[in-house]
Nucleic acid binder design. Structure first.
Lengths: 325, 325
DNA sequence: AATAGTTTTGCAAATGTTTTCATTTTGCCG
DNA sequence: CGGCAAAATGAAAACATTTGCAAAACTATT
């Protein structure tokens, strides 16, 4: 009947007599009582929330990641505080602060590049944190993700290995986006290894959308010289390119090879099936969730990260260039 | 220097001397102090969080909705507590409870169909709430969304108006999904109005994925008789159908008319452009956020809902059936 | 029936903040 | 420079809960 007993009945039921517990349960139901986690939280008890800040939820990639992360985290009894920063690392800092005010038990961010302030904040509050999506051995925090440089390298090697020499690239804006930057670097390295470079004027940067990519490729093919291959920074851009080419009666891969990175849902089923590099979003989300929750409940520093290897997936949008056949 | 002054300096800066405020700010920075919203919350002060529960984040539609809702809500100073129930209304109830324990200031749910318990809980806690995505005049709570029945009717009328008689439908599972159910009802009504029915054995239900739709349509066209049109419950299924047909060298719309519902990002740019019904997810998200925040800050019951009309978008995947040309 | 032990319950302090009220400080005017 | 109002600060109560400790209520043993 006293608050203490009610509290115990919720948190340590074995300490209260079955009979009292029953009475309490009845009263709780009758009054529609819902316990106040905010009041628990100020006792240093875990809030049961984990902050997740992504650049955007709008894109296929992150949606899949958020979903799997959220599933895994809920499974383990936590709830997600979600926010998106629209590729602004300053905004990311502000959002991180806000989540700390809410006393989240842990934080997950996308990528390894973050503002000094953000890193400082997390360290200073000794907040269990994990970086998702990209992996690097020397990241300042535990990370669970793929090697985006390697992903770029794989696709660059594949395309150049097919004999392409005139290669264009289409990437989302690289600033403040280490994932895209690393992929791009990987592509360049693979081409250099074959003595190739990306031609000046054939490296395009467009917003992350089918529409933008479609427009960009149509501008490109309207010019005199055409590349024989277009390496895209992700699958959405590749879809846009393919549709742009279809629109102009150009055939993939006969006229141009087009590749993506990511292997988003649907990329396999599309016709023609997209050649890409698989970055398993679901696995990253699930594994990342496990890591952070482990760190929280064990109250131990977050353990080593996980490298989830990217994997080349050759389907039907890449082929030898026509001239070289 | 006393807690009271610090508190005032944060919440009513005009009440503290500029000089003291400066000292406090310095100390705050030096110590890395972050104020504890949980402790504020127990004073009946708003928590600054809004609960959003969706069936899944994984699909294009909801991702877009979540993004726009989240953007609008952040703009207004709130943070989102996000969870997904995987189309289980019981799970939705449990998640709602959890969010109430976290003392969210408001709740947003998808669709109008929810468990008795969920509605009871929200009413009993007099929690400001809004239902997103679907609109109905006699919903138990304010809703901001489109008229999904009308969406179905529009596309049904369009397809039958083109002269199609042999029409198949491909929908996601209807149980516990009022949006899909209403669309389907709308399609049926439009066909009945023309004296048509959906043929027994030509109403398909598949999971919500390109892969599943592709598989389903390939099974269908392998049979003797083929429909001349396939009405899909959403754009993702339509994409799957189109790719399935392409795979089998069938042409859209020459061999079959294929339509979607939703007008997802990309549907316009895909080749051929998808005929569909636009349900403006961004607008719904933004408007829904506005409604709920208004209700929270005004401390008034959530006002009337908003009907955001669906709109037929005829592109290149629908045409008169060949036989009737 | 008294004792000892065990189980169950309640009391009180503590948590980090806000707010009301009272007290102190400041600034101004004569 | 004294007095007074206004401005700034602090002390204390309040919020909903948890927890250590003590009291109370049982149970079992003699």
């Amino acid at each position: 009947m006293s608050p203490s007993t009610v509290s115990r009945s919720f948190n340590h039921p074995e300490l209260v007599k079955a009979n009292t517990r029953k009475k309490i349960d009845a009263a709780v139901r009758r009054l529609g009582y819902i316990r106040n986690r905010a009041a628990q939280t100020i006792h240093g008890i875990r809030s049961g929330t984990i902050g997740l800040i992504v650049p955007t939820i709008d894109h296929a990639i992150f949606a899949e990641l958020v979903q799997s992360f959220s599933d895994a985290v809920e499974e383990l009894g936590f709830t997600i505080l979600l926010a998106s920063h629209g590729y602004s690392l300053d905004r990311e800092y502000a959002l991180t602060r806000k989540m700390l005010e809410h006393r989240v038990d842990g934080m997950a961010l996308i990528g390894i590049e973050h503002s000094e302030d953000t890193y400082g904040l997390l360290a200073q509050q000794s907040m269990p944190s994990v970086l998702l999506w990209n992996y690097s051995d020397d990241a300042p925090l535990t990370c669970v993700g793929s090697d985006n440089f390697e992903a770029g390298r794989l696709i660059g090697a594949h395309v150049s290995g097919l004999g392409h020499r005139d290669i264009a690239t289409l990437f989302p804006p690289l600033a403040g986006n280490d994932r895209a930057q690393l992929r791009f670097d990987g592509v360049k390295q693979a081409l250099h290894a074959k003595g190739l470079g990306v031609r000046e004027g054939w490296t395009f940067e467009t917003p992350y959308s089918v529409a933008a990519a479609k427009k960009a490729i149509q501008a490109l093919i309207a010019t005199e010289e055409r590349p024989t291959a277009v390496i895209c920074g992700n699958d959405v851009l590749a879809w846009g390119v393919i549709h742009g080419l279809m629109k102009n009666q150009l055939s993939v891969p006969d006229d141009l090879t087009v590749t993506g990175i990511g292997d988003f849902k649907g990329s396999k089923e599309f016709e023609p099936g997209l050649t890409t590099v698989r970055i398993p979003a679901r696995q990253i989300g699930a594994q990342g969730a496990k890591r952070i929750v482990d760190a929280i409940v064990a109250d131990a520093p977050v353990a080593m990260g996980d490298l989830i290897s990217p994997e080349l997936v050759v389907r039907a949008t890449s082929a030898r260039p026509r001239s070289s056949v």
